[in-house]
Design a protein around this nucleic acid. Structure first.
Lengths: 194, 194
DNA sequence: AAGAAGAGACCGAACGTTCTCCCTCGCGAA
DNA sequence: TTCGCGAGGGAGAACGTTCGGTCTCTTCTT
C-alpha cells in the first residue's frame, strides 16, 4: 500500500480511529459515546486504541487538536490573497457561513465540547479556551487594520456573532442564520469605516 | 410538559429532587451526572425518584420545563412597565446580562442541553427548540413595534447576539461580554430608528 | 527476530432501573 | 375516640448493561 509517505507516527488503524472518533464525537457528543462504539466502527481492537492513545480523554484531545488545526488552516486559506483587511474579515465570515450551511453541520465542536466539560481545570476545557483565544486574537488583529480605533470591542462583537450563529445554525434553517451573520459582519465593518 | 403530576401535590422530597437536579445538571451537564449522585445530594431514596418521575429523562425534562417557566416569568417582569417597545427590548437585554454576570453562571441551560442531545427527534432536543422558538417570537414581536419595517431579521440578530453572549459568558470575564452584548442591542435598536 | 495489529477474555465500577421490606403519617369509618 | 388502611417515603439489595481500561495470546508483516 502507499503508506510510506506518511511517516512512522501515523498508522492506518490510528487514522481510522481518529477519523471515526471525529465523526462520532462531533455528530453525537462525547459523554454519550463509549469507546466500544468507536473501536467497533473504526474496525480496530481495544488494544490498538490504547496503543495509540492513553485513554478516551486523550482521544478527545486529539479530536479537538485536529479540529483546531483544520480551522486555523481554513482561516489562513480564506484570508490569503484578500486585497484588504476588511475583505479578509468578509472572507472569514464566508468561511464560517460555509461551514454552517454544509451538510452534517452540528455546531461548533469546541462549544459543544465545553458544554460537556464545564470544569475550567479540565484539559479539554482548556483546549477549548486556547482555541477561542487564538480566534479572538486573530479576528481582533485583523479588525484593528480596519479603521484606526482600538478593535477589542469589534473583535468581541465578531466572535459573539459567530458563537451565536454556530450555536443556532444546527437548530433551525441555516440559510437565514448565515444571512443574519453576514449582515452583522458588514455592520461591524461599516462601524469601523470600511 | 413532562411528568403528569399536577402542581397541587408538590411534596418536599420531590422539590428537593428537582432543586438538586437543576443545580447539578446546570453546573455539570446531564450525561456526566448519574442518578445516584442526584438522589444522594437530594437526600431521597431511589424509589422516591422513580415514584415522581418515570426516569432520568423525565427529570431532565422537568428541569428544562422549570427553567423555561423561570425565563418566561423573568422576561415578562423585565418588560413590564417599560414605556416603549425599545425600552422593553433594552430591559430584556439587561435581564440577560444580569444572568451572565451573576455568580454560578454556566451558560444557557438550553444550549448546553441541546449540545448533549443532538438528535432532533429526542424529547429533550424538542423542548429546547420550543423554548428557543418562543424566545425568537417574543423578541421579534417586540422589535416589530420599533420602526415599521419587518422585524424578522432584527429578531434573529438579537437572538444570535444573545446566544453568543450566553455561550461565551462563562468562558471568559463576563463583564466585557455583557458590555459588548448591550452595545449590540443598541445597534439593533438604532438601525430601526429607536 | 521484532513490532504492530487482531481477537477476545476479563476487571471493577458505574449506569439506569426495579424490587422488597418496613416505618410513618393522614384520613375516613366504626 | 379509636381503628385500620393505604399512600408516601426511607433503606437497600439486586437486576442486566455498559463504562473505561488491562490483560494474554496469536497472526501478520518486515
Amino acid at each position: 500500500m502507499s503508506e510510506g509517505t506518511e511517516g512512522s507516527s501515523t498508522s492506518a488503524p490510528r487514522a481510522r480511529l481518529l477519523d471515526t472518533a471525529t465523526r462520532i464525537f462531533y455528530a453525537e457528543g462525547i459523554h454519550s459515546v463509549g469507546v466500544d462504539r468507536i473501536i467497533s466502527e473504526a474496525q480496530v481492537t481495544r488494544a490498538t486504541l490504547y496503543r495509540h492513545f492513553t485513554g478516551k480523554e486523550d482521544l478527545v484531545l486529539a479530536y479537538l487538536d485536529r479540529a483546531d488545526r483544520g480551522i486555523r488552516a481554513g482561516i489562513e486559506a480564506a484570508r490569503a490573497g484578500e486585497p484588504s483587511a476588511a475583505d479578509a474579515v468578509r472572507a472569514i465570515g464566508r468561511f464560517i457561513t460555509g461551514g454552517i450551511e454544509s451538510t452534517g453541520f452540528r455546531g461548533c465542536a469546541f462549544l459543544n465540547a465545553v458544554a460537556e466539560y464545564p470544569d475550567p481545570a479540565h484539559p479539554i476545557h482548556q483546549a477549548v479556551l486556547a482555541h477561542r483565544q487564538w480566534f479572538l486574537d486573530t479576528v481582533t488583529e485583523l479588525l484593528a487594520q480596519v479603521g484606526d480605533r482600538p478593535a477589542e470591542e469589534a473583535g468581541r462583537h465578531f466572535v459573539m456573532l459567530r458563537d451565536g450563529a454556530m450555536a443556532s445554525g444546527c437548530l433551525s434553517d441555516p440559510k437565514p442564520i448565515a444571512e443574519t451573520f453576514l449582515l452583522g459582519v458588514e455592520g461591524i465593518l461599516r462601524a469601523r469605516g470600511a
